[in-house]
Amino acid sequence: MLRMANLAKTYRTDTIETKALSPFDLEVKQGEFIAVVGPSGSGKTTFLNITGLLEVSSEGQYWLDGVEVSTLGDKAKSRLRNEKIGFIFQSFNLIPELNIYDNVEMPLRYRKLSGAQRKKRVEQALEKVGLASRQKHYPSQLSGGQQQRVAIARALAGTPAFLLADEPTGNLDSKMAAGIMSLLKEINANGTTIIMVTHDLEQATQAGRVIEVKDGVISEIKNLAQKIA
């Protein structure tokens, strides 16, 4: 469902050229749970942004569900993001002045769905994350774990083909983090592909595959659990 061939990213200014990601190949199949690990500044988020069509690669090709994305315009990329990708961020990124319902509904607003269709999807997504009764609450009235659950519901509401999670537990205590991880695993078990950037190797071991990004070089780590044991 996702294939990257010889993909690379270089940031250029007038005087400096910085290689953020060296050329790499990657293929992700439907239903996989991939953890992306690596030290800070290694290029994990750049990788995730390119995967989520928020940045463009400097070279190489990228197919998402069979569509070569590097040649797409703004509108087509936006539609692809809206229909195929769900984002989960470390800092939740909820809009404080919108209530939970409106936050979750946001991606659906950019599709031509009726009010009733949107309502059904929002309620289903909030049901999945256990916050159906908090629709009228505002983000500030929820705990960090609950806010991240709302962010997950927002990502799920659009029934995306895959979720991109950038350190989804980074701002949570261990108990809340465990809850979020188990929710992500449940979502994955239901067939949604997940690519998760994390610093936490323990969490990474819970993924089916682990990719390491180190100094811009992407490689796959086999048997991470054994290595850290």
Binding site: K75, S78, R79, R81, N82, Y110, R154
Partner: peptide
């Protein structure tokens, strides 16, 4: 800027 980025991430086009 943050809200714009979020809306772009969830699928809003520049025209939206």
């Amino acid at each position: 800027a943050g809200e714009v980025a979020l809306r772009r991430a969830v699928g809003a086009s520049s025209m939206d």
